[in-house]
Amino acid sequence: MDRRQLIAGGAALALFGSSDAMAQAVAPSNIRPDFLPVEVPIRAGIAPNEIHVVPDSFMLFWTMPGARAMRYMVGVGRPGLYESGEFYVGAKKEWPSWTPTNSMIERNPAYAQWKDGMPGGPNNPLGARALYLFEPGRGDTFLRIHGTNAPNTIGSAVSNGCARLVNDQAVDLYNRVPMRSRVVLYPKTI
């Protein structure tokens, strides 16, 4: 870990006080070296086993015991589509299917071809793995933390509201996160 990664990770966290054939399709991502996951120190007192997304820094943290976290770089929702709040992982899916919401189809009529759903697979927008975000009393929010095979979208605000990681990193995160884990999506400030 270099000094810049250590500072960036610490600064961001300071803001808060399958089938075998499909599995083989998850190739290591061709992503910038500074966008690779890295273990970073975090402030003491932050509970382990939680996801924290800091959208202004395009960082997702999986907190661990001992004031440590895995930091992943992500893409987040476009302006007006990102939703901050506190959620929990209500479902996890490998190679999930994708069905665009009515509002997604209104924004992009080309999505209408998938109004009945797109099967999971390497070309699906949800990628190799997805964590489904729920809220008490609301249920499924239609927000996801999911994979993508478009590494050029990491570090930008381009999605319909979800946080995305490249597929191999989505698989790594998926394997770490149990059901009902707390997820905090912090507000955008810039």
Rank of each mutant, 00 (worst) to 15 (best):
G66C: 10
G75S: 09
R43V: 09
G80Q: 12
L60D: 13
W95N: 06
Q5A: 15
P151T: 03
Y174Q: 04
N152F: 07
V171K: 10
F87P: 06
W62H: 07
G80I: 13
A25L: 09
P100T: 08
Y132M: 12
N160W: 08
P37S: 00
D20E: 15
S181I: 00
P125A: 02
G137I: 06
G120Y: 11
V26L: 04
L185T: 00
M64P: 15
Y111G: 06
Q169P: 10
V171E: 15
E39C: 03
G147A: 02
I105L: 05
P33S: 09
Q24F: 06
E94Q: 14
N152W: 13
P119H: 04
F61V: 02
K188Q: 08
P65V: 10
P28A: 03
R71D: 11
D34N: 03
V40R: 00
M104L: 10
M64Y: 15
E135T: 08
A23N: 09
I154H: 03
H146C: 07
V166L: 03
G121P: 11
S181L: 02
T189C: 00
P33V: 04
D56Q: 07
E106A: 13
Y132F: 10
R68C: 13
P109A: 06
I7A: 12
T99G: 04
Y72C: 13
D116W: 13
E135H: 07
M118P: 10
K93D: 15
S19H: 04
G155V: 01
L165N: 05
N123V: 07
A8D: 14
S103E: 14
E86V: 08
R180N: 13
N49V: 05
F35T: 08
A110W: 12
T153V: 03
M118A: 04
I145Q: 02
P33Y: 04
N175A: 02
M1E: 15
G127M: 09
A157T: 12
A110F: 14
T99E: 06
